[in-house]
Design a protein around this nucleic acid. Structure first.
Lengths: 188, 188, 188, 188
DNA sequence: TATGAATGAGATTTCATTCAT
DNA sequence: AATGAATGAAATCTCATTCAT
C-alpha cells in the first residue's frame, strides 16, 4: 500500500502549511494521514527525513509549475513573461508553499550542498534560460542564480506579503512588477 | 542591570537566526545570555513576548541603520544609493538580523495589523522617500511599499543566501545589483 | 492494559491522602504507579482531570461499600446499624479514601453542581433511606442530606483523626458512637 | 515596624482563604502585604513556618470566639447552646477559616504531637466543659475529645457544605441541629 | 507490514530562597 | 532592617521514537 507514503507526505504538507513549522507532531501527521504513528517510521527514517522529503516534493511541484509551456532555449521577453506569470500564479494558488520554504531554508535542516544539488536537479532549465540570455548579451553580466533571484525569487517574499494581507495587487500592478523584474535583469 | 535584557534579546536573535524558530529553547537562550532560566521571565512575560520583542528591537535598529545620512526629501539616485548601501552593509554586518525577520514573518506570531503599525512607526521616512520619487515622476506608479519592496526588501533573501554560502558577492556584483534595483523602480 | 489506569488512580489517591493536595506531582504519581510520566497523559487529559477521576472512582467504591446488604426501603435501627458499620469499616479499611475526599471538597476543583449530580447518582439509595425514615415519623424533620450528614458524614473527619493517631477507638466506643448517631437523627 | 509581621500573616490568610492552599506564593504574599519578598524571611524562617503561624493565629481566634461568654465550669444545656451557637456563628462569619484548617490537617505540615499541644493550649476549657459533663453523669462515657468532636467539630464540614452552597440552613434547622448534637452526646 | 501504547527526555514556566546593595 | 533581582530546581505537559503484538 504505497499510497500510505503519499498520504503521510500530504498530511505533513497540509499541517505545516496551516500551522507553521511549529504545529506539526508525528502523532498529528499520523492522525491526518489516517495511519498509526509507528507506520510513519516504516516510510521515513525520522522526522527530519520526513520534512526533507516534503521539501523535495514541493520543489518538484514548483519547478514543474514554473516551467510549464516555457521554452528555456529562447531568452525572450515572451518566455520571461511566461516564467514570471507561472511563478506568480503558482505562488498565488499555493501561498503556503513557499512560506514553508522560507522556514525550511532558515532551519537547521537546511544543508547548502544538498540544496545546491536539488536546485541543479530541478531548476536547471530555469538557470539555463538566464544563462542563454546572458550569453546573448540580453541580460546583465551576472551568475544565472543571481539573475534568477532578481527576477523570480523575490516573488516569494512578495507573495508572502499578499497572503498575510499586507499588500494588495491588481492587474495593473502585476504588469508593473513584471516590467520591473524585466528591467532589473536587462543589460543596458 | 538592563544589560541583561539586552543579552537575552541578543542571545535569542542569534539562536533563532542560526537554528531556526525550532532551535530555540528558553534554557538555551538563558545559557547563551549567561543568566538563569528564570531571569528571562523577569524581563519577558513568556516566550512569545520575547520573540516579539526581539523582532521590534531589530526593526528599530534596522531602520536607524538604513536611514543613516539619507535625505529622504530628495528622491535622487545619490540618496537611493545611500539607502541601498546602508541596507546592504547592515545586512552583511548583521546577517542574523533579517534572517530572523524572514522567519518571524512566516511564523504564526506574525500579525498583520501589528506589523503595519510597526512599519508605519519605524519605516515612515523610507516610504516617504519613494512617495516623493513617485510624485516627482521619477519612480513607477506603485504604492510606496511596493517600490520599497522591489528596491530593498529582496536584499533580505539575498543576504540570507550569502550567509548560507549559496552565493558570493564582489564589488562588481554589488554595483550590478544596485543598478538592477534602481532600474526596477525607475519609470520609463 | 486498563490496569495501568487503575494503578495511576490508586497512586494518586494514596499520595494525596498522605501528603496532601500539595504532595502530588505527576512524576511522583508516575513513579508510584510504575509507569512513565507521559503515560498518565494517555489516560487523563491533565492533572485536574486525574484528580476529578480519582474523586469519582472513590465515590463509586464508597457508595457500593456503604450500601452492601442494606435494605434502604426499611428505615429501621437494624438497617441503620448496617449502614453505619459499613461506612465505618470502609473508612477504617481505606483511611486514604475519604481523607482524599475532604481535601477535594475544600479545593478549588470542587464544583457544587457537579457534586450534586454525583451525589444524586451514587448516593440516591442512602438518601432514600433517610427520606423513608422521616416520612415514617421516625427521623427528625430535616432534609435527607442533613440526616445523612449527621449520621454518617462526620465519620469522615473522625476516621481522619484516627488515621492521624489523634484518637483511638475500641469496641465500646464504636457502640457509643453508633448510638450517638442514631440519637442525633431520631425524632423525639 | 512589627506591624509588617501582621501584614504578612493577614495577607497569607486572605490569599489561602480565597485561592486555597495552592494559590499562595511568597511573591504574592509579599505583594499583598506591601513588603519586599525578602522581608518575609526576616519574620518567618520559611514558607512552612509562615503557614504554621497562620494556622496558630487562626486557632487562637477560633478558640476565643467559641468560648465567648461560656462558663465551662457549668455543663448545662444553656452553656452547651452558647458553645454550639458561638461555633456556628464563627464558622458562618469566617467560612474560609476552617476550609483552611481541613487542608492544613491533611497536609504534611500537620504534626500530631504539635497539634495535640496546640489543642491543649487553646481548647482546654472546651474539653473541660465536656469532662465536667461526663463526670456529672450528663454526657456519654467517652473521652472529652470525642464528645467535643460529636458536638462541635462536625460543624466544620457542615459549614463547608453551606459555604459551597450544597445545603441551606434556616432558623428551624439550626434548632434541629443543635438539638441533634445535644442528643448525640447525652447519656441516657 | 502495521499498530498504537508506552517511554522519558525536554520544553515552558513558576516559585522558594538567597544575597548584594 | 529592608529590598527585589537573580537563581535554578521542580512542576506540568508534549512529542519523537520504540517495540511487543
Amino acid at each position: 500500500m504505497p499510497d500510505k507514503r503519499e498520504r503521510i507526505l500530504a498530511a505533513a504538507e497540509t499541517l505545516i502549511a496551516h500551522g507553521g513549522f511549529h504545529g506539526i507532531s508525528m502523532q498529528l501527521v499520523a492522525k491526518h494521514a489516517n495511519v498509526a504513528t509507528g507506520t510513519i517510521y516504516r516510510y521515513f527514517a525520522d522526522k527530519e527525513t520526513l520534512l526533507r522529503c516534503v521539501h523535495e516534493e514541493r520543489l518538484i511541484e514548483v519547478s514543474a509549475a514554473i516551467l510549464q509551456n516555457v521554452n528555456t532555449k529562447e531568452p525572450s521577453y515572451e518566455q520571461f513573461q511566461k516564467l514570471w506569470l507561472n511563478t506568480m500564479h503558482y505562488l498565488q494558488a499555493n501561498p503556503d508553499s513557499l512560506c514553508y520554504r522560507v522556514q525550511y531554508e532558515a532551519s537547521p535542516l537546511f544543508d547548502r550542498e544538498e540544496e545546491r544539488q536539488r536546485d541543479e536537479r530541478y531548476f536547471k532549465p530555469v538557470f539555463e534560460f538566464f544563462e542563454h540570455g546572458r550569453e546573448a548579451g540580453l541580460f546583465r553580466d551576472m551568475p544565472a542564480e543571481l539573475l534568477g533571484f532578481l527576477a523570480l525569487e523575490n516573488l516569494m517574499l512578495l507573495s508572502q506579503k499578499c497572503t498575510k494581507g499586507c499588500i494588495e495587487l491588481d492587474e495593473h500592478l502585476y504588469q508593473q512588477l513584471l516590467d520591473a523584474s524585466w528591467n532589473a535583469i536587462l543589460k543596458r
